[in-house]
Amino acid sequence: MNGVESVEIEVVRLAHGRDLALPDYATAAAAGADLLAAIDGEIELGPLERKIVPTGISLALPVGFEAQVRPRSGLAAKNGITVANAPGTIDADYRGEVGVILINLSREPFKITRGMRIAQLVIARHARAIWREVGELDRTARGAGGFGSTGVATGDAKTGTG
Score class of each variant (00 low, 15 high):
I9T: 05
G46N: 08
E42L: 05
Y25F: 13
A37E: 02
P23E: 01
A38R: 06
A28K: 14
G41F: 12
G46C: 04
D19P: 01
L35P: 06
I39Q: 05
A21C: 08
E49V: 15
G32I: 05
E49N: 09
E8C: 04
P23Q: 09
P47K: 15
E44P: 12
I39L: 08
R13C: 03
H16D: 07
D34L: 03
I43N: 07
L48D: 14
R18L: 13
A38M: 02
V11Y: 12
A38V: 05
L22C: 00
E42Y: 14
V11E: 04
E10M: 05
V12H: 04
L35A: 03
I9P: 05
L45T: 01
A21H: 12
G32F: 07
A31H: 05
D34N: 11
I9H: 02
T27D: 13
A29H: 05
L14N: 04
A37S: 08
E10I: 00
L45G: 02
D40A: 14
L45E: 01
Y25W: 13
L36E: 05
A38Q: 00
G32Q: 02
A21Q: 14
A33W: 10
L22H: 04
R18N: 07
R50H: 15
A15I: 11
I43C: 11
A29N: 10
R50V: 06
E8N: 07
Y25D: 01
R13L: 09
R50T: 05
E8I: 14
D24W: 14
E42F: 10
A15Y: 01
A37W: 02
L45D: 03
A15C: 03
D40H: 15
A33V: 12
E8F: 03
A37L: 08
G41I: 14
I43G: 08
A29R: 11
L14C: 07
V12T: 15
I9N: 04
G41C: 04
A26I: 01
A31V: 11
A30M: 05
G46H: 12
I9Q: 02
L35R: 07
L45A: 03
A31G: 06
L14E: 06
A38I: 02
L36Q: 13
E10S: 06
L36S: 10
I43D: 01
A33E: 05
G17H: 03
I9E: 04
I39V: 15
V12D: 02
E49L: 10
A21M: 11
A26L: 14
D34P: 06
A28Y: 12
D19F: 01
L36H: 15
R18A: 11
E10D: 09
L48F: 12
H16E: 13
T27Y: 15
E49G: 10
T27Q: 09
R50P: 01
D34T: 13
D40T: 13
A38H: 08
L36R: 15
E49I: 15
L35C: 00
G17P: 02
A29Y: 01
A29I: 12
E49D: 15
V12W: 14
A37R: 09
Y25V: 01
G17T: 11
E8M: 00
G32V: 06
L20H: 12
E10P: 00
G41K: 03
D34H: 11
I39T: 09
L22S: 00
T27M: 13
A31S: 12
L35V: 04
A28P: 10
I43H: 12
A30D: 09
L48Y: 13
G17E: 07
